[in-house]
Design a protein around this nucleic acid. Structure first.
Length: 658
RNA sequence: GCGCCCGUAGCUCAGCUGGAUAGAGCGUCCGCCUCCGAAGCGGAAGGUCGCAAGUUCGAAUCUUGCCGGGCGCACCA
């Protein structure tokens, strides 16, 4: 609603600017006044025109206000402050439009987006950092869907990398297991396999540097040999890796499902290798001369490309020492090379496809996994027109190189729609690390945070955090709602735990490092998920007692004399709720454009705050004026409806009681 | 050395296209459940927006330099 009115205002202002002064500004800033009593929109355009028109800002603003005339949805315009043009919405009309659910016009053509997130190495349990990735990615998926896109969700599985190799080295060499032995080991585990491998991975990493120099060299060599056997496939080592990595991937999907996070496809590196995606990409890269064979210098014998962000070499024969190696002198391809091939596939530009098998069932769809030989019938994957890679900020260089390669291949359009959805890491506060029993070096104790490390086994496992949240929410629900049945209590506790966790991860903007601490993550008061859920619970309690539904309350909001209840100081606190709700469409669009879910999280928090202020000031159930009571109920209803829908985008549910 | 990110209240963070008295939560202090749910609400204290120049009618926001912190810059994946 707010957005649509803003667009009408902007169009009218442009017409007036053209008519009065013959100017057509490239951008027309429309802001919000600092206080609700000043109106809903503020236009500072008179300030910039003052110099060129040789006229005082207030005089320009006054002329424009006089020329504006009537604009649909607006009550009045006025000059304010030193020369602002302030616009007031017709509050009653806005309420009617919102209550009727008139949507804002879509600002973009719907497309097919592909979002890749989670992408945890399948050799250990998921930790808090992975939770941030998956929650950000999943929320962005929901945001794209809510604004009209078709989205497929991919979780890339690096099942043939060093991290998996390390686990296999641990199994084969530290535990001395064959493939059968691994089966027995798995069967005998007293904890989930991802937890067992968390420790084994840390042990193996340590083992590489724990022996004599000669031993360590041999161990590193063993690691390399193991990696090559994984890449080749068709041997027992690869079979062990396949067995373990697949089991761990399944655990990751289970962990994420607890938070409502689902996937459509798991593309695996093993298929990128075995289906020779790289060969197809290499041919294109050579053809378009993105790669060149270096003949001298430190990279002699390698196929290299110009590194993103660097200038092309001066002469054709010039050696670019800073170039990025894509194919090593021994003929093997680097990770970035494989990534280029994979991303060509994402855009449907590779000319090859994966095989697909069903892998993990959800309530209403199936997650597929890539395979060399798949099933003949499968959904169509890939061929997206926009892609978003949810990958932490540390990987911005490799991501930039892949984009650079796309551009070099002439796929400028696709490169422009390739978004590295980057975010900062989750680290532990020293206090949290000590609390978990980790040894913290003296020099680290004074730091704000310490980076987690799977290699060192240093971090908070996702499932452990979820369990701690559940324990806390179960205790709260039990204390507050002893009358509830056990099933309902458990469901409520889960909704609150998920809400608390998701909101915690979403309230920070992407490029803020989260210094993780249980105290903050387990908070249920203040700016937290439960605060938002509580606002919804309160509205529902009102509707239970009033004996009406929110839908009915909204339908009854169209009272012709609602206008007078929306005026004055009393009216402002009612209108504040409607205005906030009206801005939701604008916020969704901003979140989409800036790929920043935090804006929506904060918007929901503000709406809940506005509702709390309204709730304190106006007593709905005892209101005697029926027309006014109808408006108050509708105000609770628009809060309920807007919050529930917006929380759904954040992946949160509100219980009926809590 | 080069590149990216960060530096706003005691702490953790918001601050959208530069704009009207710089915001929130936590913490501290004082209040509020015989009125729709206190996972709530009201109030108080607390800030040279790292520093310095510049652009502008106007800078927390843009530019440059400096200071402090973080992360990247392999023929590893």
């Amino acid at each position: 609603m707010y957005l649509a009115a803003q667009q009408r205002l902007a169009a009218r202002l442009r017409a007036v600017l053209q008519q009065l002064y013959s100017v057509t500004p490239a951008t027309l800033a429309i802001e919000q006044p600092p206080e609700i009593r000043l109106g809903e929109y503020a236009v500072p355009v008179a300030f910039e025109l003052a110099r060129t028109l040789r006229k005082a800002p207030r005089a320009i603003a006054a002329e424009m206000v006089a020329a504006l005339g009537a604009v649909e949805g607006f009550a009045s315009f006025e000059v304010a402050g030193a020369g602002y043009i302030n616009a007031r919405l017709d509050r009653a009309a806005a309420v009617r439009s919102l209550a009727a659910g008139v949507p804002d016009a879509r600002a973009h053509a719907p497309g097919h987006a592909l979002v890749e997130h989670t992408s945890i190495n399948p050799n250990k349990a998921a930790h808090v950092g992975h939770l941030r990735n998956a929650i950000l990615g999943d929320t962005f998926v929901r945001l794209l869907r809510a604004t009209g896109d078709r989205v497929s969700v991919q979780n890339y599985i690096d099942n043939t990398g060093v991290q998996v190799a390390d686990i296999v080295v641990g199994l084969e060499n530290l535990l001395g297991l064959s493939l059968d032995g691994v089966e027995g080991w798995i069967a005998g585990l007293r904890e989930p396999i991802d937890y067992a491998c968390w420790d084994l991975y840390a042990r193996t990493s340590q083992w590489y540097t724990a022996g004599s120099p000669e031993e360590n060299a041999a161990r590193k060599q063993l690691r390399l040999t193991t990696l090559h056997r994984l890449e080749e496939g068709g041997n027992q080592t690869a079979a062990i890796a396949e067995r373990v990595a697949t089991a761990i991937v399944r655990r990751h999907l289970e962990t994420m499902l607890r938070l409502g996070i689902e996937y459509d496809l798991l593309p695996r590196e093993s298929e990128i290798l075995h289906l020779h995606f790289w060969d197809a990409a290499f041919a294109q890269l050579k053809e378009k001369e993105v790669l060149r064979l270096e003949t001298a210098g430190k990279n002699a014998g390698c196929w290299v490309m110009r590194r993103a962000g660097t200038e092309p070499a001066a002469g054709e024969a010039e050696i670019d020492e800073d170039a990025k190696v894509i194919v090593r002198s021994n003929g093997t391809v680097t990770y970035v090379g494989k990534d280029i091939a994979y991303h060509l596939w994402k855009f449907g530009l590779l000319g090859r496809d994966f095989g697909y098998l069903p892998f993990f069932p959800y309530a209403d769809h199936t997650c597929w996994i890539t395979a060399v030989a798949g099933e003949p019938e499968h959904p169509h994957f890939g061929g997206a027109d926009a892609i978003y890679n949810v990958i932490d900020a540390r990987q911005s260089d490799p991501q930039a190189n892949v984009i650079e390669a796309m551009r070099g291949l002439g796929y400028a359009e696709q490169a422009a729609h390739y978004t590295h959805f980057s975010y900062e890491m989750v680290a532990l506060t020293p206090r949290c690390a000590l609390e978990l029993g980790y040894a913290v070096a003296e020099e680290d104790r004074g730091r704000a945070y310490i980076e987690v490390s799977g290699r060192k086994g240093f971090g908070v496992k996702a499932d452990d955090l979820i369990e701690r949240l559940l324990a806390a929410t179960r205790a709260e629900v039990e204390a507050r709602n002893p009358e509830l049945g056990e099933l309902e209590r458990e469901q409520t506790a889960q909704q609150i735990a998920v809400g608390a966790l998701r909101y915690f991860m979403l309230k920070f903007t992407r490029n803020t490092v989260i210094a993780f601490d249980f105290k903050d993550a387990l908070a249920f008061e203040g700016e937290t998920g439960p605060y938002l859920q509580y606002a919804v619970v309160r509205t529902r309690s009102i509707f239970r007692k009033a004996g009406v539904t929110p839908v009915a309350a909204l339908a009854a909001a169209a009272s012709p004399d609602a206008a007078r209840y929306l005026q004055g100081e009393q009216g402002d606190s009612i209108w504040q709720v409607w205005l906030r709700a009206a801005k939701t469409g604008l916020v969704l669009q901003q979140c989409r454009e800036t790929a920043e879910p935090a804006h929506l999280a904060r918007h929901c928090f503000q709406l809940a705050q506005d509702f709390s202020a309204f709730y304190r000031k106006h007593h709905i159930l005892t209101e005697e004026d029926p027309a006014r009571k109808a408006l108050l109920l509708a105000t609770a209803a628009i809060t309920e409806q807007t919050l529930v829908r917006s929380l759904a985008v954040l992946g949160m549910e509100a219980p009926d009681v809590m």
